[in-house]
Design a protein around this nucleic acid. Sequence first.
DNA 1: ATTGGCACTCAGAGGGAAAGAGTGCTAAGC
DNA 2: GCTTAGCACTCTTTCCCTCTGAGTGCCAAT
Lengths: 357, 357
Amino acid sequence: MELTERQKQILGAIVDIYVSTAEPVGSKAIAALPDVKYSSATIRNEMAELTQMGLLEQPHTSAGRIPSPAGYRLYIDELMQDYRLSLDETRTLSQALELKSQEFDKMMSQVGKLVSKMTNLPAYTVATRQNEAVAKHFDLLMTAPGSIILVLMLSGDVVKNKLVKLPVHVTEQELKLLAAVLNASLTDLTAEQVTGELLEKITRSAGSAAPLVPLVLDFTLECLRQQHGDVHLTGQMRLLGQPEYRDAAEKAQEVFETLDEEMLTNLPAVLPKDGPVQFLVGPENVARELKDTSVVMMRFDIGDGMQGMIGVVGPTRMDYAKITAKLGYFAENLGRMFQKSTPNPPPVLPEGSENEE
Amino acid sequence: MELTERQKQILGAIVDIYVSTAEPVGSKAIAALPDVKYSSATIRNEMAELTQMGLLEQPHTSAGRIPSPAGYRLYIDELMQDYRLSLDETRTLSQALELKSQEFDKMMSQVGKLVSKMTNLPAYTVATRQNEAVAKHFDLLMTAPGSIILVLMLSGDVVKNKLVKLPVHVTEQELKLLAAVLNASLTDLTAEQVTGELLEKITRSAGSAAPLVPLVLDFTLECLRQQHGDVHLTGQMRLLGQPEYRDAAEKAQEVFETLDEEMLTNLPAVLPKDGPVQFLVGPENVARELKDTSVVMMRFDIGDGMQGMIGVVGPTRMDYAKITAKLGYFAENLGRMFQKSTPNPPPVLPEGSENEE
DNA sequence: ATTGGCACTCAGAGGGAAAGAGTGCTAAGC
DNA sequence: GCTTAGCACTCTTTCCCTCTGAGTGCCAAT
C-alpha cells in the first residue's frame, strides 16, 4: 500500500506541526499552509484515510490528529527533510566544540552536557570498543609501604588505575620486576587468552610480590572485559521542559528511573551495530515505561578501535530532523577531532546555513 | 527569648508531622498525639505565639501551620531527636556498602547512587583535598609514534592521566629521560612552588623532548590546582517524588538547573570547613532558586589528606533526623573503610535498632 | 475529484455553591 | 490564672454544571 504524494505531504505536515506545537493538528491548520492547495474538507478525507492506515491517531473524536508511532517511523524513514543548521546554531556548536581536551572520560561527559544543552533534552554518551581490548602496558608505583598503585594502559589509549593495599611488604625492586614480567607476558592478549597456566607462570616469576598477582589480574581482566566505558547521562531534567511531561511528574520520574537503570546498561547492547543514525520510536523501545519516549543516537569513530556514541532521549514527538542535524554535526566534528588527533576545533560549516528556527 | 517546654514540644511535633505529611499541621492533629495533654485550644494559643516569634508560618488564614526556616533551624539545632536506624535499614545499608572497590572516582559516584537510593533524594558526592596537592610521580608512556600518555600521581593516591599527541618525534630514551627529570625536580612541590625558573631548568634538561614540557606542566598545574575532584550528582529525579515538586515541573527544573551548575561548582567552597554535619536550610542557601530546598551534608575522612563529602538535596521540609542518621552511617563506614584500607564492609550496627519507619 | 455547508461531538474553561479544615476569640471551668 | 469548650468566621478545595469552540464526518453541490 503506497501513499499518494498528497498523503505524504499531509502526513509530513502533521508531523512537522505537531512536533513544534505538541497539540493535535486539525485539518484547517494544514489547509492554511502556504503550499497546500486543497481545502480543509479534502484534507479531512485524506486524514481519515491515513488514520485508517494506522499512520495517524485521534486522541478523541473532536480533536485533530497526531502521528502514530508507525507514522513517525514512516516520517523518519521517508519524509524527513534534512534540517540545515542555522548560522547561529553552527556558531554555537563550533564554539561548544572548542573543548579543552581533558582526560577522555571527562571529555565524553562534557560532550554529553553540550549535546543536552543544545538539544534541550536528556543526552547520553558512551564510548564502546569495536574489537577486543588488550593490555598495552603495566606500571606499578609504590606510594607508601604496602600501598601500590596499578596503572594499566589498554588498547585505544584507555588508561585505568587502581589503588592496591597489601599487608605484606614488597620492595621497589620486586615491584619493578613484577611490572616487567607483566609487561612481557600479559600485554597484547585478550581476556580469553589469559589462561590459568599463564597466571601460574607469572606468579612463579613474581617472587615475593606474588600475592599481588591475583589482585592485578582480576583488575586487568575486569578492564579487558569491559565492552564499553561509563555511560554518561546528563540533563535528565530537561525532559521536564517538554509539554508531555510538564504536569506528569510521575511519568517523568518513571522514565528517569528506567533511563538510569535499564537503559544505561543495556542500550549499547540493544542498538544495532550498523549505520550511523538510529532511531528508536516509542513502542519499539526496550522498556515499557519508555513507550512514549524515543531515542536518537549517532555513532562516531574515535580511532584506535574505539567508537563514541552520542544520543538524546525525548518525547516520541520530537523534532527528529533538527536533532539529527545537531547530533550529526557533533558526531562529525568529534570524529574529525579524534582523527587528526590535534585537539583543534574543526570549524567546518555545513553549506547553506541561513535558515532559522 | 526562651521557649517553654510545651512550646518546644509543640514546635517539634509540628515539624515531625509536617515532615512526613507535607501538609500544614492543625491544632487538632497536635492535640491528638498520645503524649500531648492539652486541648486543641491551648495548642492554638501556643501556635499563635510561636507564629509571632517567627518560628511557624501560615500559608493562609484558615490553614494549619508549617515551620518557618527559623523554626527548622531551631528544630535541627535543639529539638531533633536522634533517629535510630531500624534493623532493616542497617541491613540494607550494610549490604549496600559492600562495594567492589573500584577506581576511586567511580566509587564515589557509586556511593552517591546508593545514598540517593537510600534517602530517595538527589545526592551528591565530592572528594576534596584538605591540604595543598603535590605531584608524587610522573610516568610517560609511548603508545604510538607521537602519541604519549602522561600518568601523574598526586598526593592522596590520586592518579590522573592524559593523552598527549606530539607532531615531533621523541624516542623512548628521551621520554625516560624527561620522566626522570620530572620526577627529580617537580615532585613534592605545590602549585605555587613551581616557578618559571624551574620550568626553564627542566626544559633545558629535557633535550629534544622539550616541546613536551609545557604540555606536561600545564596539565600538572591544572591537576595541582584542582581543590576537589568531580562532583557527582545523581538521582535528581527523585526530587520529583517529593510532594512539593509533584506538580511543579517548572520549579523542579529550576532547582535542577541550579544544582547542576552553580551548586556543583560552588558548594564545596561555600560550606564551612568545620564539623561533620552541615545543614543549609532554605533561604540560607546560596542560590535564590533553592530557597525551598535544603541541603544536608556530611564529611568523612579518606586519609592521605583527602576528605569525602556526601550530601543530599531535598525540600526544606525533609526528615532531617532520618537523613542525618543515614548519611552518618554511610560516612562513618566509608571513613572506616578507607582508614583500614582493606576494602571490607564494616558491619557495625548502631545500638538499639528495633524502631521502625 | 473537490469543496462548501451543516449537524454533531467532546474536551476544556469558567463560575458558583457547598464542603471542610482550621483559626481566633470569648466565656465558662478547674 | 491557666485551660478548655464553643462558636462564628475565613478561605481553600472540590465538585458540578454550563458554555464555548475546535474539529470531525458526511452530504450535496460544483
